[in-house]
């Protein structure tokens, strides 16, 4: 029973991190129709910005996280406005642009900080113990921030004019534009929102795990897997899938081991896509 509870705690913690990443990824696809291959790069950048603020400038960690969010959102906004926007409907061009940005970010960080891992610690450590079950305090804080961010994103998208505008553009861009909505204003904001979420996750998670160039690679793979499972472009689907992926990963790894756990996860995704190609909550496959 203790092992079951422990697996559930780990799964929820993983799920919250995956949800933040997947929401940003699917937001960009849902609204702009762009698959952002630089998503892992923004995660990595968020970690390095927070690390630099704390280790080099002596900024308190909570403020460093906010700076990391602002920096990744600002870079995302500039990238969308000046590069992506010009070719936003050309899928191959946007793929190459985002992939290129990822390579620039990862190699830039490699040259600046070197290839070895940074000594970057979460300011709170220790665990709350309930008999044999433990909950790391840092994971609990990250889980709370992730859930708050998910709720905030939901409020922005479903309770504000900005969100209504973004959803209208995602549903039918031509009609939304006829109603006076301006993609050139809203697309960079959507991109910035998504990259800011990736930066937030990087700033929160890398001090718990590890910060080194290359930590963005598995992030892209996980985000992709999660949003495909949830249904590309579906925010609710991405959130649901993220927690499903986290729980499946945790339970399978705990009960069947690290190798078989990863295998089971991919087999489940494969089966789901065979029987439901649109994913868990995807309505239709988005047109090119």
């Amino acid at each position: 029973m203790a092992q079951f509870l422990q697996a559930a705690i780990i799964g929820l913690s993983l799920g919250a991190q995956y949800a933040l990443l997947a929401l940003g990824f699917t937001l960009i696809f849902g609204i702009l129709g762009v698959v952002n291959f630089a998503h892992g790069g923004f995660y990595m950048l968020g970690g390095y910005v927070a690390y630099s603020c704390v280790a080099l400038l002596g900024v308190p960690y909570p403020l460093a996280v906010l700076i990391a969010v602002a920096a990744t959102a600002a870079l995302g906004w500039v990238f969308e406005l000046f590069l992506l926007e010009r070719l936003v409907d050309d899928h191959l061009a946007t793929l190459m642009l985002t992939l290129g940005l990822y390579l620039i970010l990862s190699n830039g960080l490699l040259q600046t900080f070197g290839p070895l891992a940074m000594e970057f610690r979460f300011p709170v450590s220790g665990a709350i113990r309930l008999g044999p079950v433990y909950v790391p305090q840092e994971n609990l804080i990250v889980l709370a921030i992730c859930l708050a961010a998910i709720v905030a994103l939901w409020v922005v998208l479903y309770r504000t004019d900005l969100g209504r505008g973004l959803r209208a553009l995602a549903d039918d861009r031509a009609v939304a534009m006829a109603q006076g909505l301006r993609p050139k204003l809203l697309f960079p904001m959507a991109f910035a929102l998504a990259t800011g979420l990736a930066g937030l996750t990087g700033a929160l998670v890398t001090p718990i795990l590890a910060l080194s160039p290359g930590v963005g690679d598995p992030v892209l793979a996980t985000s992709f897997l999660t949003v495909i499972l949830g249904g590309l472009g579906s925010l609710q689907g991405a959130a649901l899938a993220a927690f499903a992926v986290g729980l499946v990963e945790a339970f399978c790894s705990v009960y069947f081991g690290g190798s078989i756990g990863a295998l089971i996860l991919f087999v489940l995704v494969l089966l789901l896509l065979v029987f439901r190609p649109t994913g868990l909550l995807g309505r239709t496959v988005r047109g090119a």
Binding site: Q3, L14, D217, A250, S253, V254, G257, G258, S259
Partner: peptide
Amino acid sequence: EEYYQRGTTNFAPIVTRVLA
């Protein structure tokens, strides 16, 4: 012996399994 997929970033599930 406990094996993991290379590229794993979060070892919490494997740690739980090992400590069992």
